[in-house]
Structures are given as structure tokens and as C-alpha cells.
Write a protein that binds this DNA or RNA. Structure first.
Length: 560
RNA sequence: CGGGGCGUAGCUCAGCCUGGUAGAGCGCUCGCUUUGGGAGCGAGAGGUCGGCAGUUCAAGUCUGCCCGCCCCGACCA
């Protein structure tokens, strides 16, 4: 297929949009792919929609390959379904009413609706099922950002599996995991599958697909030696060994007037920050106070502590701290307290300086097991350069975009919505489900983050809006345009998507736009190439740049 | 929701401190020249200066309130 650029709506911009920060945001706007309508609300212009649809088609093929059945569920959803599952209370849900006052929601995913349909599954003989669709999701995000990275409305491929038991769910889950790897690979993305934070949901398996990028909202922790990969929120790292002072037989009080920070404490005592401990009191929903204890040079990981406590919590207030410990926040320690102490694994061995629960005083030589009885857990946030817990290698950090998330929800939705089936043993059981999401928009943004240079986008072949960009540098010379049309037609006849720049623009502008748009292959036709029937071909990644016979151009383009 | 910044032509911005006829570059239209990395000359079109209220003889500029957008944080089944 050949299209003439002179007829297309591709509004490229010479300068970066003023409000853009992320590379993908800048380049997609400049390249005429997307435009913002409102905060977190975007239009895909014709070029952007072509890329989106190419991603969609790849996903579709891989979903069909694992037995997925495409369907379409509505956006407008009666609120009763969400009341039944309790998700009506999720703050990100958009609410609206019809003229009679009947309540609806705009769903953020479709578990309720698909489970509503799954009620028609009656027998184990009809299982398993994998249903999916591409549809609009709305989320009242408090803070959209980064162009397509975090938006309030987007299209998601969400699929849902229904099985008779956990074993079946495992299988459906693995099928999706493998399909997702193929999808991202076909889209030309580098992606790491990592165990995702399960938070208060607990127990259920959840895998995130993270694409390393210059902009993103997740931090991917990887070990180059053994391939370990995890989200920062649950990653495990081993901190460097501390320089511990001579051990004491018992804790000794030391006056530390005005010292309330770890930095000041280490400075004051002339010791390693890693030889101190830091206490963080938190309060759970039921009012119970817990003391989190990490090494002085570490940060408490809130997501890990959430996993350990199994319940939501908040930092304790100054009043609560005073009432419980009799001291201010900067002077707290684990010795002699009545509340539960959760200590990080790094504090298991050795003696550390801790707060004395007395303003202006600390304790030297505090030892876990001897001076206090903590519950040990991994609650520290890993740091770049930590040692890999698995192989001893060095942990590196990368900013990453979450492009996919697969999740086992079990009977979370089938129970409240009473989606049951009759099993082989004659008993009625709730369907066991999983949900699996990919945001094509984020895939697109991640592809730009991973594939660009100073001039513009460098698309992977598989999702580029067009395979070949033919530039006619004709300057009013009809023969040049004819040759360009000829080459374009030959390429188009081979099944390639060809964008023919037949605009009456100067060469520099055509080159600049072509760089920005980023089609993987380029053919340049101009006065220079008229003489001997050869044209210039160039790959966007710069690997190929040569003049060749038109017949060979077709071979080259179809072989890539 | 807390902190910071911004809102003037299609885009990127100046003008605001110190009130007095609304500007530049790019883009757009027409003409001529030019044509292998964002051309040159000439002539034009284009703006309720985010909104409302106030101060003033006079408000893009000062004051108040509101709205929108961006960034950091919180949040993110």
C-alpha cells in the first residue's frame, strides 16, 4: 500500500512542546502521532493510531494463539456490579448517572462485567475459558503525567481466564506469561517480567512486565550476573557490611544532645552510618502501633512493610510517639518498648547504635536477640550497588515503564457476583479467575523511549506506522516524482506499507520530518539518482546507507 | 491532596518589576527566486493577552477569587 504524504494529516512540530518532559512525550507530539485534549486525555492522530493498531494486531494474534476469544464489553457499566464487588469505593473510579438518576461507572478494568457474563458458564465441561477485548478504560488519576505514560483514559487489552481450580488457573496464567513475552518481543521491546507487589491483596500471584526506559514510574532492579529482576518495591538486596565498633557486654547510654538525624549521629560519634539503626513508628488501621527498624543508612520500604503487616498503616504522629515512647521521633529505639518491633534482616547480626527513647540520648551496642526481641523481615529498600541476594553480583537500577500486568484473582470476583459452575463431583463451586492487561499506548511510548536518537523516533519494524518512507526530492522536476512513485509502487506491490513524501517541500524539511517520524527504511529519490536508475537507501538506525539499483531496493526492503 | 512553576498568534517565547496604540522567531497565504539536511526577497492574514471581579482617566502589566496545564511528592484493583 502506498500513501501520499501530501494528502495526510501529519502535523509535525519543529520544536519540543513546552509542557513535555519525557522523550516519548516530546517525540510523539512532535512527530504528529498524538495530541493532548486535556490532562491525561489524548487523541491518537492518524500516524499514532496506525502504530497503536499494529501493536493491537500483534497482541490479538498472540492472544488468539493461546485460545483467547475476542469480544467487546461496554464502557458504560451499571454501578450495581461494582457495588457487589466493593470496587465502587476505589477512588480512581469515574461515576456518572443517567437522566433518571441510575448510577453508572466508567470501568478501570472489566472483571465485574466479564464475571457477570461468566455466570452463564454452568459446567466444568465448559472450562477453561479465556475471554479478552480491547476497550477504553477510564481512571480518575490524581496526577496524569509523561504523555502516554500515565493517562486518565486509554485502551487496554484485558483478558480474563476462568478455570475450575488453582491448577487450571496456573496453566492459564503461564499461557499468558508466555504470550506476553512473545508480544513484547515482537513489538521490539526489551522487557523484564518481575514478581509484582501483592500488597494487602496478599498471596495471589502477580507478574509485572517492565520495559526499561528513560522515563517511567517503576524502578527495575536487576543483577547482570544472574539475571535476577524485580521491582524496587519488592526487590531483595544485601547491603554492604557495616564497620562495627568493638562489641559491648550490654547497651551503654551516651548523651547526644540535639542529635536527631542519622547523619548527625554518625558524625557526632565518629562511626559508620551503617553501624546505627533507625526506628520508624507506624500505626495500623486498628490503632496498633508498630516500630519498624532498619539500618541507619537504609530506607524503610513501605511496600515491604505493608506486605509484612498485611494491613494498611500510616506514620505515627508526634503525639502518639510521645505517648508511647516518651521521646521524640529522632530518639527512638527498640530497647524496652512494649510495641512489636519489626527489624530488618540487616540488623540480625552485630551491635548497632539505637535511640534510647529519651530525648538527647542514644544507646551504644544494641544487639537483637539480647537487648530486644524483634520479628525479622526484609523491610529495607534496596539501594543501587547492593549485593544480589541470589548470586552475590551487583544490583543495578533502571527506570521502567509497566507495559503489562498479569494477576491471579482466584474467586475475588466470582464469589461476590456468584459466578459458579457445577464440578465433576456434583458440587457448585466459584470460578477461579485471572486477569491480564496490556496497555498498547504504553507499549508505544516504551518503544519510543527505547528507540530514538537526537533527530527523532527509531521504530521497530513491526510497529512502525509505515515500513518505508520514500522521499521525492524533486524541486519541481516531474521525472523525480515519477521515479519516486515508481519505486513506491514496486515496494507497495510487495505488501509493504509505503509513505511517499510527495510534498512540495525542501529536502532539509523532508529529511527532518522523516527522521522525526522514524520509519525503519528510507528511499531517497532526487536529481542525483535520476541518471543511472539507482536510488539512495538508508535504514533509520543508520546501519544501511548506500546507493543501489531499484530492483535491489525491493529485495533489501523485503528482506529486513 | 501538599510543594513549586506556567497560562500573550497554530508552535516556541518576549513584553508585566516601573500601567499609556499588543510584539519577535518559526509556521500559514500570495508572488518571484531557490531545491540532497528545517532557503532568500517582497506583500499579507492571524490575538476576547485563561476567566470573572476590583483599583485606575487608563490594566497584558497592579489586587482578589476562580479555571486550566506542567513538574516533584502523596496516591496508583
Amino acid at each position: 500500500m502506498v500513501v501520499r504524504q501530501s494528502r495526510l494529516f501529519i502535523p509535525t512540530l519543529r520544536e519540543d512542546p513546552a509542557d513535555a518532559e519525557a522523550v516519548s512525550h516530546k517525540l510523539l507530539v512532535r512527530g504528529g502521532y498524538i495530541r493532548q485534549v486535556s490532562a491525561g486525555v489524548w487523541t491518537y492522530l492518524p500516524l499514532g493510531w496506525r502504530v497503536h493498531q499494529k501493536v493491537v494486531q500483534i497482541i490479538r494474534e498472540e492472544m488468539d494463539a493461546i485460545g483467547g476469544q475476542e469480544m467487546l464489553m461496554p464502557v458504560l457499566t451499571p454501578a450495581e456490579l461494582w457495588e457487589a464487588t466493593g470496587r465502587i469505593a476505589v477512588p480512581e473510579v469515574f461515576h456518572l448517572e443517567d437522566r433518571t438518576g441510575r448510577k453508572f461507572v466508567l470501568p478501570m478494568t472489566h472483571e465485574e462485567t466479564v464475571t457477570f457474563h461468566a455466570r452463564e458458564i454452568q459446567s466444568y465441561r465448559q472450562l477453561p475459558q479465556i475471554l479478552y477485548h480491547f476497550s477504553v478504560k477510564d481512571r480518575d488519576e490524581p496526577r496524569p503525567r509523561g504523555g502516554l505514560l500515565r493517562v486518565r483514559e486509554f485502551i487496554m487489552k484485558d483478558s480474563y481466564s476462568f478455570d475450575r481450580d488453582e491448577a487450571g488457573l496456573d496453566l492459564s496464567f503461564r499461557k499468558h506469561e508466555e504470550a506476553y513475552h512473545r508480544i513484547f518481543e515482537r513489538c521490539g521491546l526489551t522487557v523484564h517480567a518481575v514478581q509484582a507487589e501483592s500488597g494487602i491483596m496478599g498471596g495471589k500471584e502477580s507478574v509485572d512486565f517492565l520495559a526499561p526506559a528513560g522515563a517511567g514510574e517503576n524502578t527495575l532492579v536487576t543483577c547482570a550476573s544472574c539475571g535476577y529482576a524485580a521491582d524496587l518495591e519488592i526487590a531483595r538486596g544485601v547491603p554492604r557490611a557495616p564497620e562495627l565498633p568493638e562489641p559491648l557486654d550490654a547497651p551503654a547510654e551516651v548523651a547526644t544532645p540535639g542529635v536527631t538525624t542519622i547523619e548527625a549521629l554518625a558524625e557526632f560519634l565518629g562511626i559508620d552510618e551503617a553501624a546505627t539503626s533507625k526506628a520508624m513508628p507506624v500505626v495500623m488501621a486498628d490503632g496498633t502501633l508498630v516500630l519498624g527498624l532498619v539500618r541507619g543508612d537504609d530506607r524503610l520500604s513501605e511496600s515491604k512493610l505493608l506486605g509484612v503487616l498485611g494491613r494498611d498503616f500510616r506514620p505515627a504522629s508526634e503525639d502518639e510517639i510521645r505517648a508511647t515512647f516518651g521521646a521524640r521521633g529522632g530518639s527512638l529505639g527498640p530497647v524496652g518498648v512494649t510495641v512489636e518491633v519489626i527489624a530488618d534482616e540487616a540488623l540480625r547480626e552485630g551491635q548497632f547504635v539505637a535511640g534510647a527513647n529519651r530525648d538527647g540520648w542514644h544507646l551504644l551496642g544494641v544487639e537483637a536477640g539480647r537487648d530486644y526481641e524483634p520479628r525479622f523481615a526484609d523491610i529495607r529498600e534496596p539501594r543501587e550497588g547492593d549485593t544480589c541476594a541470589r548470586c552475590g553480583g551487583v544490583l543495578g537500577f533502571q527506570v521502567a515503564i509497566e507495559v503489562g500486568h498479569i494477576f491471579k484473582f482466584g474467586t475475588r470476583y466470582s464469589e461476590p457476583l456468584r459466578a459458579t459452575f457445577l464440578d465433576e463431583d456434583g458440587r457448585e463451586k466459584p470460578l477461579v479467575g485471572g486477569s491480564y492487561g496490556i496497555g498498547p499506548g504504553r507499549v508505544l511510548a516504551a518503544a519510543v523511549e527505547q528507540g530514538h536518537d537526537e533527530h527523532g523516533i527509531v521504530w521497530p519494524r513491526t510497529i512502525a506506522p509505515y515500513d518505508v518512507h520514500v522521499l521525492a526530492l524533486y524541486g519541481g522536476a516531474g521525472e523525480v516524482l515519477e521515479q519516486a512513485e515508481h519505486v513506491a509502487a514496486l515496494l507497495g506491490a510487495e505488501g509493504l506499507d509505503v509513505l511517499l513524501d510527495d510534498r512540495e517541500e525542501r529536502p532539509g524539511e523532508k529529511f527532518a520530518d522523516a527522521d522525526l517520524i522514524g520509519c525503519p527504511m528510507r528511499v531517497i529519490v532526487g536529481r542525483k539518482t535520476l541518471s543511472d536508475g539507482r536510488v539512495d537507501v538508508r535504514s533509520r538506525d543508520g546501519v544501511v546507507d548506500e546507493r543501489m539499483e531499484i530492483a535491489n531496493v525491493v529485495k533489501w526492503a523485503t528482506s529486513l
